Simulated scan of single mutants.
Amino acid sequence: MNEFIKEGFKRIRALWYLERSGCVFCGGHPSPICPICTRELLHPELGRCLRCGKLIVQERTLCKDCTEGKGPKYLKKVIAWGHYTGCLKEFIQNVKFGANPMRMMQISRPLADWAIRELPPVDGILAVPMHSTRLAERGFNQAELIASLIHWELGLPILQGVKRVKATPPQVSLSRQERLQNLKNAFALQSKELFQGRSVWLIDDVTTTGSTLDAVAEVLYKGGAKEVYGLCLAAGFEKVLVPGFD
């Protein structure tokens, strides 16, 4: 990235922080992320399913679906920063659908600090690619935005070379089997040499079943990638294992 543009973003982010006096998510507490939002949205007391990223009880390493072999198969590990609900869900949707990408700068440091604690160092980071038609509609790829923030905070190289070659319907309303079929042959490598022997953090905003991450990871492994880890802002939780949540 051009150093002038990079420095400009740093200054914008600094000004943004100076203008804010409350929690990024709820605005109701004089701290970047207040204790209430940390507890109710980020759930540090819960574990994450290693295969799909769902929030689960700390004693488990896999959710029920992944234990039964229904989860992703190509990802070394998946982590999700928080639970896709409440103010975190509103934050993500405001960025994505409210044409407000600059808001993502507010969480770059805490997200990066958490990610480097939860995942091993890698050769680079890759955003889940967006099809050109949807990119034209939205104007930006939120996964690329997150990857850029991680790059600025941690210095990890941004990798290119995977393209979304099929325009697929949104995954949100589909069953797991429909999601898998929907993503079949949706991604393609532009060059096999780009990922040969490399370890990668694969970035997206939200994961539900891990199907999208896994579809990209499959392509990366076919291109010779060594290890692929998923990193997302938010995921659901396994209600049967975490009673008492709404």
Rank of each mutant, 00 (worst) to 15 (best):
E227K: 14
K73V: 12
K77Q: 14
R60G: 01
E45P: 00
A143L: 09
K73I: 08
F237W: 13
W152V: 04
N100C: 03
K166G: 06
F195D: 04
C34H: 08
F187Q: 06
V206E: 03
K70E: 14
I56D: 04
L75K: 10
I203Q: 04
Y221E: 12
L145P: 00
V78Q: 11
Q177L: 13
V228R: 08
A136G: 07
K184L: 12
N2S: 11
A99H: 14
I150D: 09
F187H: 06
Q196F: 06
H131V: 05
R39F: 09
A234L: 04
G98S: 10
V216I: 12
R138G: 02
R51H: 12
R51P: 01
M104K: 00
H29P: 00
F195A: 01
M1F: 12
K64V: 13
R39N: 06
R109N: 06
K64G: 00
V200I: 15
V165N: 08
C232Q: 00
L189W: 02
F237M: 13
C87I: 00
T168C: 07
S132R: 14
K6E: 15
I203M: 05
P243M: 05
L135M: 10
K73R: 15
K6W: 13
N2D: 15
T209P: 07
E218G: 13
G155N: 04
M130L: 15
G210S: 08
A14I: 02
V242C: 12
M1E: 12
L174D: 06
D123L: 02
Q93T: 10
P129R: 09
Q106P: 00
P169C: 05
Q196I: 03
R138H: 09
T85Y: 13
V95W: 02
T168P: 07
E144M: 10
P129I: 08
R176V: 13
V172Y: 09
K73A: 15
G86D: 15
A80W: 03
F187G: 02
A80R: 02
C63T: 07
I5Q: 14
I203Y: 01
L180M: 11
K239Y: 12
S21E: 07
S173T: 14
S148V: 03
L42I: 12
C87K: 07
Q181A: 14
P157A: 09
L135G: 01
Q58R: 15
L62I: 00
A143W: 05
T133Q: 08
L119H: 05
G53H: 08
L46P: 04
C232W: 01
K192E: 13
K54E: 12
